[in-house]
Amino acid sequence: MMLRRMLLNLTILALVSVALSAPLAADNEPLVVDLLPERVEVDSSFTGSTVILFGVKTQPGDIIVTLRGPEAPVVVRRKRRVAGIWVNRDSVAFRDVPQYYAMAASRPIDEIMEAKALDRNQIGTGHILLNTIWTRTADEVDSFREAVRRTRAEEGLYAPEIGEIVVIDGSLFRATLTLPANVPTGDYVAETILVRDSEVLSRREVHLTVEKSGISAEIYNFARGQGALYGLIAIAAALVAGWVGGVAFRKN
């Protein structure tokens, strides 16, 4: 762990010095960013991780970083009491819901951007666009939208607080984002924007992949991809386990 962190710091130093020693390239680009690591492996001992986004800006302005992903359709159901039992009745399905969302900003967010601009740029969990696929309720869809955010937040997947962005010498910046232990696997997008007077001056996207690794990931993927073969192996294992167990104890 120590070693990994040291390596990470060294790499950052190296990359930052590359960015600084290339002022010509930076002159054309108002924003240069990179992410470390670009790939996170989740194995059975995974207890969470951090990714560090760092970059250089060549124009004055504030920086906002969002990390979101993987997007998938989500069904929100609401229980109603039917004959004394709580039953899922109403439901609304939403398109492309990010399973994870975190952000960081160089100043308090409301000082950087006004609410309309936050909506337009989908910045902050309250401003994520949630379009419905279908609606099976007579009630307000907004309560279901709210439930998406609440349940994700309760699982620790929508970060409750806006992270800090450290800016050095007015141009070099660094944001640290936390991935919790239950981080979903898939593709993530880290978007960095340079903002002045609520206007986005520049925008950069970098990608992050979170994958399962290790034996449990292989079992999971095998069970999904080769259901029939997996089923046969599981049955064979059960037969052998039961049979061996029986034989072992009969001898005693």
């Binding site: 998938a72 709580w86 349940t151 994700r152």
Partner: peptide, 15 residues
């Protein structure tokens, strides 16, 4: 578990 009022009436699952 079926009769008691759940803490959150809403639940969100991947489709």
């Amino acid at each position: 578990g079926l009769v008691a009022r759940p803490d959150d009436l809403y639940s969100a699952t991947l489709m």
